[in-house]
Design a binder for these strands. Structure first.
Lengths: 261, 261
DNA sequence: ATCGATAATTTGTTCGAACATCCTTGCGAT
DNA sequence: ATCGCAAGGATGTTCGAACAAATTATCGAT
């Protein structure tokens, strides 16, 4: 059985900055098993350690994560509303599937909403916003893109910093709802990105271009050039989407042909 | 076998549509207590029968709804992700509060997203879409606006038809994600609307104007006049928001039940 | 051998009780 | 009287077992 379950079990407080959608602002020790397992499942879902379509059996999860089924039900219920898992009465939970149409929908809306949020952030952002962008960009650029996909920790680290950078761009947007939606879309897109990263031929040119785009967006945002910033951001998203879609079709084909797991 | 990558993702809005999947006796057995209580709580949350800020104690809910705490936890967990309920570890669940800033945010984004969705629907809608709009409009116009707020059933009926009409306008939009977000915002706005409806001086002129707007939007949409349709829809939303805000301040003042604004 | 029905097993659902934490109350000291 | 602290009650959390539905396996008939 592929070790999709034995992911880092450190009881370290869930640094929920890994996800754009902030989970719990107030950080007390008010943590419960249900909250914890929710964060862990969420991470594993987005990272793709739990495969799309896979059944999430209670006994299995209980053994893998070392928690009872009561906290599990709680966590899975929330993940249903997060659209990360599906539920059918008396038939249990499954990992939400991926689909090309969903990917298209997701990306189109993400581009639109993120650019919208970026515009608002540029209009209202203060010095702290600018500083945070530069800090996040610096941290991102300092993180080498892991050449081995097997290196989960490195991938997680890069994804987290990438997420954080994109979040910093729009953080000054004055609409919590818009931020929430952008976060949800970002999380879901990450699922696709990480599902296909296995075959991502890390073309030097592509990486170079992506880095360039990050820097350009940051600079344009801080220079309050909304037109340029949103244009580059949209271009950046479009580029990512195209790469993901290209690889997605490849992965999808190879999965359909190969043995089912 | 088709892989899990090719299955569609349906962002079903069935739960928030008040009527369709209610407790139908005997036919669909795929329902569980958790699902049922989720729908009921959701309805009561949106209808305002559960007051903003109110603590949701398990014993209390268990007695009131006649279910155990296991299904309750499941339902409440989902409602947390729906933003209708708040949760603090070891301190229980509370009804999500209302606030003026949230109301503003909500409405601004709803207008934007709904108009966006309406544009897409107008561009892609077919005859069935047109027919459904007319049907929903007819049913809405046939429903008298209840003069007594005490008449829950009548209010529910009107709200449901109103919801259905607005949904029918954008249903042909090809973006499940956008529809999902519009639905969430619509549900949350309904919470505000119904919270303040108690003092809504049902001005004849206002009602007349609202009806007019509904009809105009429907006609413009079917005539594929996107500019006019979105303009009227935005105006319609703006009008609702203003009424709600005016009454909200009144209610907020009279209650002065310390809610954070 | 295929089909259909039924038995056996697995899996999801719900409940009740044990446990931990939070909040209130009551007591005593300053 | 106020503050701090401890005891008690209320509430949230988690587990294990009983229950119900669904899936798989088994068997007999055509």
């Amino acid at each position: 059985m592929p070790s999709a379950y034995d992911q880092g079990t450190s009881l370290s407080r869930a640094e929920s900055a890994v996800s754009l959608s902030s989970v719990a602002p107030g950080d007390d020790d008010a943590t419960t098993l249900g909250i914890e397992i929710y964060a862990r499942l969420r991470r594993d879902l987005i990272a793709g350690h739990l495969k799309p379509g896979e059944r999430l059996r209670f006994r299995q999860l209980s053994a893998a994560y070392g928690v009872g089924i009561a906290p599990l039900r709680e966590a899975l219920s929330r993940l249903v509303s997060d659209q990360l898992v599906r539920f059918e009465g008396h038939r249990g939970y499954t990992v939400a599937p991926l689909s090309l149409s969903d990917l298209h929908d997701l990306c189109a809306l993400r581009t639109e909403l993120s650019c919208n949020a970026l515009r608002r952030a540029i209009a209202r952002g203060d010095e702290d916003w600018e500083a945070e962008i530069l800090a996040a960009l610096h941290r991102l650029e300092r993180t080498p893109l892991p050449h081995s996909v097997e290196d989960r920790k490195a991938v997680d680290e890069w994804e987290q910093r990438h997420d954080r950078f994109h979040y910093s761009l729009i953080a000054a947007c004055d609409s919590p709802w818009l931020l929430h939606f952008c976060g949800a879309l970002s999380d879901h897109f990450q699922r696709y990105r990480r599902a296909v990263i296995v075959v991502t031929s890390s073309s030097e040119a592509l990486l170079k271009r992506v880095r360039e785009q990050h820097r350009t967006v940051a600079e344009a945002a801080i220079a309050r050039d909304a037109e340029r910033a949103t244009a580059v951001l949209a271009e950046h998203f479009q580029g990512s989407v195209e790469v993901v879609i290209r690889n997605y079709e490849e992965v999808s084909r190879s999965l359909s042909a190969g043995n089912g797991d």
